[in-house]
Simulated assay, not measured.
Amino acid sequence: MDYKTIKEDGIVEEIIKKSRFICHLKRITSEEEGRNYIAAIKKEHYKANHSCSAMIIGERGEIKRSSDDGEPSGTAGVPMLTVLEKQELTNVVAVVTRYFGGIKLGAGGLIRAYAGSVAHATKEIGLVHVKEQAGLELTLTYPQYQVFANFLEQENLTEQNTQFLEQVTTELYVDPEVLDVIQERLIDFYQGKITMTKIDPQIIEVPLELSDKEDLSR
């Protein structure tokens, strides 16, 4: 498991030339879940002029869908989808609801507004890298544990679920590709006198910084 998505579900609203653009973002795991969410937004905002949508599903973004929902073809759904693609996001659906404010935006203006609404919302809500980390349980004597902090600092790691009984048990979680290296370094650090066992992996979410260098709405 290794993909990027939004940090959490959220709603971000902005006014563009007197029209209200409300971007709804939701984490999903299936196309059906995405379609149900789109239907729910349309029902909630039944008085709105449009509720355009874009979704990407699958760890490799295998499923992509978009809808202009009555806006001129290619001015809403695809630009919204393009923003999600540029940020390499998946397992997410975006719905932008528009309440017309009386000023026509033209095709270019609509594209910028819908794409910009999604780009603005993802920046406000935040992104995460969802990935699986391999687990390692260590059993240490108390003298071994007294120097364990040195190893953690050296490898930039954090222990978890530490228990102090007759001996100390603690857990480390690392990216799978470095697990063997960490095991070798533990063996070296304790001169071979270390008891460790592979345990179930955990899924973690690492916050991502969205670059300001690129205008994702274009």
Results as ranks from 00 to 15, higher is better:
S51Q: 12
C52E: 11
C52W: 07
I56W: 01
I57L: 11
I57K: 00
I57N: 00
G58K: 03
E59T: 12
E59R: 04
R60I: 11
G61A: 08
G61L: 10
G61C: 05
E62H: 11
K64A: 06
K64N: 11
R65W: 08
R65H: 14
R65S: 12
R65K: 15
S66C: 14
S67K: 05
S67C: 13
G70A: 06
G70S: 08
P72R: 09
P72V: 06
P72K: 10
P72M: 08
S73K: 14
A76H: 10
A76F: 13
A76R: 14
A76T: 13
G77H: 12
G77F: 09
G77I: 10
G77S: 15
V78E: 09
M80L: 13
M80I: 09
M80R: 12
L81G: 10
V83P: 12
E85A: 08
E85F: 02
Q87F: 03
Q87R: 15
E88C: 10
T90V: 02
T90W: 03
T90F: 01
N91V: 06
N91K: 09
V92K: 07
V93C: 07
V93Q: 03
V93N: 05
V93P: 06
V93W: 02
V93K: 07
A94M: 04
A94V: 09
A94R: 07
A94L: 03
V95D: 04
V96N: 01
V96Q: 01
T97S: 02
R98W: 02
Y99F: 12
F100T: 00
G101E: 06
G101R: 05
G102W: 05
I103C: 00
I103R: 00
K104M: 09
K104N: 02
L105K: 04
A107E: 06
A107S: 12
A107P: 09
G108H: 04
G108F: 01
G109S: 11
L110M: 01
L110I: 01
I111C: 00
I111F: 06
I111L: 01
R112T: 07
R112D: 08
R112H: 09
A113Y: 03
A113W: 05
A113F: 05
A115W: 06
G116H: 07
G116E: 11
G116I: 02
G116C: 03
S117L: 02
S117N: 03
S117P: 07
V118A: 12
V118L: 09
V118I: 11
H120E: 15
H120F: 14
H120L: 15
A121G: 13
K123N: 15
E124Y: 01
E124S: 10
I125E: 07
I125T: 09
G126C: 11
